[in-house]
Write a protein that binds this DNA or RNA. Structure first.
Lengths: 148, 148
DNA sequence: GTGGCTGCAAAGAATTTGCATGGGC
DNA sequence: GCCCATGCAAATTCTTTGCAGCCAC
């Protein structure tokens, strides 16, 4: 089991990262704006350019990049984990019908944490906010399948 | 794969629910205040009273109860799903060190969704807010393991 | 050159599902 | 009695890991 101590330690090592072809292409895929791909989606896409890359490598890299703070792991919806290139802080909306995830360009609400501090014994360090709703496609009762 | 249509349909059927011994005890476990157990934790606890209950039954029931709106499925942290008896709307804090999850008794922020509506094409229906922080035990650098 | 990184494959963890039987209503 | 619910076990799905060779620095 990976402990937080592992995480904290790994975070220090981010300068050691070697920029392999695999890692560079994985990062490139994540740079596509508005994407919140699963590990498998990243795998499928990078495979177009490195046909024999392994899914294990993709998982390993997403984990490493996530611990280095270059990528954010999202635990949205009930399915697989998703990954988001962390450029600036933002929120997400998930379509309750098709699962499509989109960015919400709203400014982070700073006072949320202040309010939580008043009613919890925790040291509050941050927050994640996820909206639920119906995406453009699903508003009209259409049952389309959205992409990542 | 379970689609949203399945979900919506099942939601209508909530009156069909039979109150079996298994289902009742699962609900009882979830009634314990402040608990956010995983399926396996529920299984372990109910097993004390129904030794031969199966893990599959626990999963099936948690899913059914969740779709009936009696239980909320939480996707917090990276690990297993957790389940929360839905009595009233509230938020959660997760300890980044030990993973302990606690309720935040703060009142829901209604204006969050209003703000999101302004900057998204989605029909916003709701939101989930999760705080991150350090729990009482972990504040002092202790690396204790919290329970559910 | 060396230590991190990769591909491959097998293992592991979490959850779902098929089927025959059992039990709530 | 009907039909949903259960126990059991196998199957799926997603993710991690061991290992020998490879490659970025």
């Amino acid at each position: 089991m990976v402990t937080i101590m592992d995480k904290l330690q790994t975070k220090e090592k981010q300068s050691d990262l070697r920029m392999t072809r695999q890692r560079r292409l994985i990062l490139e895929e994540l740079d596509t704006p508005g994407m919140h791909p699963t590990a498998d989606t990243v795998y499928q896409r990078v495979r177009r350019r490195i046909p024999n890359i392994s899914l294990g490598t993709v998982y390993r890299n997403l984990e490493i990049l996530s611990q280095a703070g270059m990528v954010k792991k999202l635990h949205i919806g009930s399915g697989q984990k998703r990954y988001d290139r962390t450029l600036h802080r933002h929120y997400h909306v998930r379509c309750v019908k098709c699962g499509f995830i989109s960015d919400v360009p709203a400014e982070p609400f700073g006072d949320l944490e202040e309010a939580a501090r008043g009613s919890s014994e925790f040291d509050i360090l941050g927050h994640d906010l996820e909206f639920e709703g119906l995406c453009e496609n699903c508003k009209g009762d259409g049952i389309q399948q959205h992409q990542d």
